[in-house]
Design a protein around this nucleic acid. Structure first.
Length: 463
RNA sequence: GCCAAGGUAGCUUAGAGGCGAAGCGGUGGACUGCAGAUCCAUUACACGGGAGUUCAAAUCUCUCCCUUGGCUCCA
């Protein structure tokens, strides 16, 4: 039984999809006007793990994500660079996809572009106009907030509070808080509509897309914490008004922010880190571990020091797996006396791991159960009190956990980084020579080689 | 001002009324030719301050302090 925190009710609820075991899930995708940063990566890795776990628990998940490929920021960027806005968007969308692939985010079933859903968007605006939830001005079509008293239910705000700090109220609108469904424009990428040429507002694309694939009601809607207001609030207003059905979404899930050394990541502060740059120096699994070592709703603080901690922690897991593989290939003296105990510990570990994940996807606790288990297995190995059967069982458990969390534990970590065949060959020659030196007890030279390799960030460990 | 999320050992984080965790880092020991890895011990009588409720509070209530984010189609 999975419990998840619902932003709408501000408490943990038992997860029950509307339709048996089939889960319809939508997460707000990026606006593709620039390279994706590690804050994006945090959010999408979190939802990747959530989907992996739901699937592991027997749910069939359809995970839909939108791509905002027409937007003010894209147009601004295109004017600065001279590129065609739609081509610019395609370019950054491609980069985003490459980053997600590199990060091991594989769970999204379909990416829906806003520009490929104009008929659905226009249809939904039509419906809102017909039901008089929207009105047209000479600037565009706007949602009439006064017709939707529930506005603010997700972010816990009242309509009257929202007018306090408004700047430059647009007097052509009925209420200051009314948001654009359709923007009448010229000289930019425009589409024909019953209200003349223009382009859709930011919020309407998501509800048009989800209505097309999921209908007016579905199970999970996710996104970054910053999207709660106004974006998700507006989505609720549009969809629930258009369909007359409530609630639009059963469970709202939001991921916490990623800060860099305690500050918000921004270009002006010079602490803006793109996924591409991160991957130049770091293994994607290290970043994934870093993300999962904090609960998805909590703020997470990024720094190179913390990333190094994650790297060392992850190394501990890989180290045990390597040790197990070596033992399985060797003729060790087996001890079967702990088999029962080991089997029991595997079961207990699995139970506490799943319990942690069931509890609103508590990955930090889940990771700690892995480490508890690792220490125990290491202890057995140290005392030579383990059989190959138990070693296999332990290994499979850790690999299974890796599949849920998105780590490929069945592959050696060293195999993932090495791409250079010549380099590997040379390294093998060096280690062979060194092994012979050690046979001859030439410690001075063999240590010298080891130290020099270490300076090149190649760590040799003698048995 | 309003809304939200936070403040737990040197660092990163779990926990959410009693039995106090995990990883990283430091130190000592076992094992090693030496390192490393691993194990054991230690750092470690940790929960922002103050009051209250309770037999019992890191956990509940109140209050104060601090940090971060959001506050409309211009994000």
């Amino acid at each position: 039984m999975i419990n998840l925190y619902n932003t709408l009710t501000r408490k943990k609820e038992i997860f029950k999809p509307m339709n048996g075991n089939r889960v319809k899930m939508f997460v707000c995708g990026p606006t593709v006007y620039d390279n994706s940063h590690i804050g994006h990566a945090r959010t999408y890795i979190s939802f990747d793990v959530i989907v992996r776990y739901l699937k592991y628990r027997g749910f069939t998940v359809f995970y839909l994500q939108n791509i905002t490929d027409i937007d003010d920021k894209i147009i601004k960027r295109s004017k600065e660079s001279g590129f065609d806005p739609l081509k610019l968007a395609r370019q950054f969308e491609k980069k985003y996809q490459d980053c997600m692939k590199a990060m091991g985010v594989e769970s999204v079933n379909f990416y829906a572009r806003a520009t490929e859903h104009l008929p659905e968007i226009i249809q939904q605006i039509q419906t809102l106009l017909e039901k008089r939830f929207a009105y047209e001005t000479d600037k565009g079509v706007y949602f009439d907030e006064s017709r939707f008293p529930d506005f603010g239910k997700l972010s816990n705000r009242k309509l009257e509070d929202l007018t306090v700090h408004r700047i430059n109220p647009d007097t052509s609108k009925k209420n200051p808080g009314d948001f654009a469904l359709w923007k009448k424009r010229k000289g930019e990428p425009v589409w024909d509509s019953p209200w003349g040429p223009g382009r859709p507002g930011w919020h309407i694309e998501d509800t048009a897309i989800t209505e097309e694939y999921f209908g007016p009601q579905y199970d999970i809607h996710g996104g970054g914490l910053d999207l709660i207001f106004p974006h998700h609030e507006a989505e609720i207003a549009q969809m629930e008004s258009a369909s007359g059905k409530k609630p639009m979404v059963s469970y709202w899930m939001h991921t916490g922010f990623l800060n860099v050394k305690g500050e918000k990541m921004s270009k002006s502060l010079g602490n803006f880190i793109t996924i591409k740059d991160l991957l130049k120096t770091h293994n994607p699994e290290v970043f994934r571990f870093f993300v999962l070592s904090t609960h998805y709703r909590s703020p997470i603080d990024f720094s190179n020091e913390i990333l190094e901690q994650s790297q060392n922690s992850l190394k501990r897991i890989y180290k045990l797996l390597e040790t197990i593989d070596e033992l399985l290939e060797s003729d060790i003296e087996e001890s079967t006396e702990n088999d029962l105990l080991c089997k029991q510990r595997v079961q207990e570990t699995e139970e506490s791991f799943l319990e942690a994940m069931d509890n609103d996807f508590n990955t930090p606790f889940a990771l700690s159960t892995i480490f508890d288990f690792i220490r125990e297995v290491n202890r057995y190995i140290n005392h030579q009190e383990i059989s190959k059967k138990s070693l296999n069982r332990s290994k499979n458990l850790i690999i299974e956990f890796g599949d849920i969390l998105g780590f490929n534990f069945s592959q050696k970590s060293s195999d993932k980084s090495s791409e250079n065949i010549v380099e590997d060959g040379l390294l093998e020659i060096i280690t062979d020579v060194r092994a012979k030196l050690r046979e001859q007890k030439d410690w001075e030279l063999s240590d010298d080689i080891r130290n020099k390799l270490k300076n090149l960030h190649i760590n040799l460990e003698d048995k």
